[in-house]
Design a protein around this nucleic acid. Structure first.
Lengths: 148, 148
DNA sequence: GTAGTTGCAAAACCTTTGCACTAGG
DNA sequence: CCTAGTGCAAAGGTTTTGCAACTAC
């Protein structure tokens, strides 16, 4: 499982340290969770108590640079990390204003917009879409939106 | 011009202090610029030298709460502020990886996606889309993408 | 007059960096 | 070996907060 990521590190001349393995392992165990650096730090400390938060940040920066993880801002004043989709298909994120759940939205539908921009001379390499509102559970309970 | 915003403040029992007027005035003068709190602070100091940065933050927080301004994160580790569109039509933002320019994209095209989600029980109140790539100028000069 | 606002400075947060020490290949 | 990587602590940058003084209404 983690092997493929180890290979990417090796191929790029990066050392396979226990710390990096541990971070990759946590990311693997928490797929779909959108972890902050601190979340990851707390998880990694369970198996590597001596690790420093700086190593977490340095590892995440490396993994983001190698496009193994995707760094995302949900306007909370900090970043969240998740494994990148290796098919190059970036999903969107829905954030519930009521319960705070983050739900991944696989549908894209941005081709029309991006095609339009390419036609005008732009070159689009990436996008990042957050949708805000009420998730099905909170919507049906009739909770107030409390727009963030 | 600023009067309408003053009315919103009044209506909500907020005092119309010179500091708040000055922040609104700067936002007005810099429409379309996506200012950071510090940018606004520096501008406001020209007319109100004694103002403190805390007042800028408190005012922006208030204006965002009243939905007079929109607080946006472009993944730079800080926020940028701009007047909200009062027609409820949120535009998107394109960020050039080469020259750093931020261009507003008026086209929406998210109705299909949002309609699909509403059909599944979600209730969408807001969205936030950033597009990354090369602006027409940098694209035609053949600059490297340098994906942020 | 008085509750809401302000300025200042300190604190709170998240993230990065310098440096001496360590260890993976 | 030897350089990349680590842990620690300190610094950096942005935003928030406590509090006494102030002011718009």
């Amino acid at each position: 499982m983690t092997d493929s990521y180890c290979q990417i590190l090796n191929r790029n001349q990066y050392k396979l340290t226990p710390q990096r393995k541990a971070v990759l392992h946590v990311l693997e165990q928490t797929r779909g969770r959108h972890m902050t650096a601190e979340d990851i730090y707390n998880e990694v400390k369970k198996t590597n108590p001596g690790i420093g938060i700086a190593t977490i940040y340095r590892t995440l920066e490396l993994l983001a640079r190698l496009e193994i993880v995707h760094k995302n801002s949900f306007d909370e004043g900090k970043y969240r990390y998740e494994f990148s989709e290796n098919d190059g298909h970036f999903h969107h994120h829905f954030l519930c204003s009521s319960c705070g759940v983050i739900i991944e939205v696989e549908e894209d539908y941005l081709n029309i917009l991006e095609g339009e921009l390419e036609r005008r001379g732009f070159h689009i390499t990436d996008h990042n879409l957050q949708l805000y509102g009420l998730c099905p559970d909170c919507h049906q309970e009739g909770n107030a939106p409390g727009k963030r």
